[in-house]
Design a protein around this nucleic acid. Structure first.
Lengths: 344, 344
DNA sequence: CGGCCAATTGACAGCGCAATCATTTACGCA
DNA sequence: TGCGTAAATGATTGCGCTGTCAATTGGCCG
């Protein structure tokens, strides 16, 4: 049996299809009595509008696109980050009856801009969420905004004058992590910086320096290494840092992958964690709990952020665009087993 | 400026819209000359068909749904598995101009069946891919097939009489892994079984026994433990197994998460890997390379499998349904650092 | 009770495309 | 050259819905 259409509902309820349309779309100016009749008919027929027809008629799809850095472009992709984001967006979409289209995207590709423009032209989404680090690249954001598609940036970096941005308190929470390490008695706290392209990790570095300062510890250039966000770079940075003398007793990395790399190196060198060396990361990807010892880290509220973003886009499609600006969803520190009081 | 429509193309090319439609959809019976004209017009206008209009007119969306076990239902979700699957499906979809809708799904939920039926009614996808372990649950598969939506099962378990199934040579490759461990001199090779509900892990257990047999080793009940696919269960099983005397010198787990758990336990107990204990897993999720030492494992060709599945569904929507049956994409053994010759 | 305005409802025209069926063209052969 | 057939092309309808604008209704006031 074919699915019921708006005509069937209208006939059953004894009204015109336009009235049914009004009820379905929660438009004003429908009498309570009429609304009840229509809703009863809808329930009775188990009617649900055909999205394609709606999209065609209104020329905008009930669909949100999530754009993020393509993990398959990397040797050892970091999947946890993405799954977390998808989760929040899916949640909001389901609640609103929207669908989520995922679009991993390689920013090294020459034609990303065109690719996105085409995607938008193709599916006409109600909105687009652009995740960090892509959200900091004009190369990505500009083509999107030029199509007039509502766009929310997920950026642990900074706000933007033109788009609504959802961020987190990277700098503050990183400072807090640093103070936490200091409170455990650590005096030589090293830091592994991440990819310079990513503003987020820059903020974390600033937070690290803030934290040192607030704990009355000096900032030492020799205790900072620069990675590229990958596990491998974490390993190399750790080799470097652990060669210093005296050795740092804690290493705080700008993301979990690098922290996992630090842990690998410590394991390889036979340095006990957390006995001789405390390790802290940032992101709380699944990996953080899968390695041994489980990583003390900063939980990025990624799921909450993408949920908020989706919500904003849904509202926007209903006529309430969100004004530009920065909303901050705070992260929290998850203390696990990779940090302990400083030795001695 | 509004996007060009099929009418614009027809006008520019001096043909009817039906002819344009034929060219766009690669239908036969168009003269080469005409085709060229139309294609030139399409290129000139940068025309791309409106998917909503197509869907409305043909009452089936150019869209594939990927259904998988909802990771957020678990405490420590295993994201790698999912990302790999998404990757292959995305690849095939892009090539065919299809979109991918992801639908994580909690099978413990009472209403999964209805949920899926509604989803299908809602979006009318060209097809659905159901990933293991959901693909082995009638609870999930039946409601789908009842809607006449083409459905491909991804199951490392077994084929099905009614749906096309893409699997892998779990049993054989697990036997090979076992033989490999035996070839390293291991005589006491333990096995960690996974969740009974998952046929795949059952096959791996069979493969383990085959491998022992082929290597002339006895099957010992005491060297088998039963986990539930989670890291935590791997830890517990390892505690059990390592209490045996003499201790096993190799532990082969039915998935990587549990192998990671085994490694955590070994680390905790101060047992050196791979010096005193070799560890092997199965799946080759990203985690396998993120822990130390990197895990020797069986690489599941998940991406290839989901790509194949998507392709089959695309073809199906073009009038070439795939007949039921089982296709096997073989896995391969990735030797990394967690396995070494047996001690002594 | 008549009149007027606002609230409510409906008629109808597309949105852009696929599919059906009718029409035209091309080609082979006698 | 003319006929028959198959190939190529086109005219038209309708998919299910939204948006526009017109028609109707109801309520309130004088």
């Amino acid at each position: 049996m074919p699915r019921p259409t708006i005509d069937d509902v209208a006939t059953l309820a004894g009204v015109s299809i336009k009235t049914v349309s009004r009820v379905v779309n929660h438009e004003p100016n429908v009498r309570g009595l009429t609304r009840d009749k229509v809703e009863k008919a809808i329930a009775q027929l188990d009617y649900r509008p055909n999205p394609s027809a709606r999209n065609l008629a209104s020329s905008r799809a009930r669909l949100i696109v999530l754009v993020y850095d393509d993990p398959s472009a990397y040797e050892v992709p970091s999947a946890g980050y993405i799954i977390n984001m998808q989760e929040g967006a899916l949640k909001a979409c389901r609640k609103a009856g929207f669908e989520l289209l995922i679009h991993p995207c390689n920013y090294r590709n020459e034609n990303v801009g065109k690719e996105l423009t085409e995607l938008i032209g193709q599916v006409r989404p109600a909105g687009i969420i652009v995740a960090a680090p892509l959200s900091n690249l004009p190369l990505i954001v500009k083509p999107i905004t030029e199509t007039d598609t509502p766009c929310v940036r997920l950026s642990t970096g900074s706000g933007s004058a033109k788009e609504y941005t959802i961020g987190t308190n990277d700098r503050e929470i990183s400072a807090e992590m640093t103070r936490y390490l200091a409170s455990l008695g650590h005096r030589r706290i090293a830091f592994v910086k991440g990819n310079r392209q990513h503003k987020a990790v820059g903020n974390r570095f600033k937070g690290y320096k803030d934290g040192l300062d607030e704990s009355g510890l000096p900032y030492l250039e020799e205790l900072v290494a620069e990675g590229d966000n990958s596990i491998g770079s974490g390993e190399r940075c750790a080799e470097d840092l652990l060669r210093r003398s005296p050795r740092p007793t804690a290493i705080f990395s700008a993301n979990d992958d690098m922290a996992a790399g630090v842990l690998r190196t410590a394991n390889r060198l036979g340095i006990s964690v957390p006995g001789e060396l405390s390790i802290a990361g940032c992101d709380d990807i699944a990996l953080a709990q899968q390695i041994y010892p489980a990583l003390t880290t900063i939980r990025q509220p990624l799921s909450a952020m993408s949920e908020l973003a989706s919500l904003a886009l849904v509202n926007s499609s209903r006529g309430n665009p969100h004004e530009p600006g920065l909303d901050v969803v705070p992260g929290i520190i998850k203390v696990r087993d990779s940090t302990a009081p400083a030795p001695e």
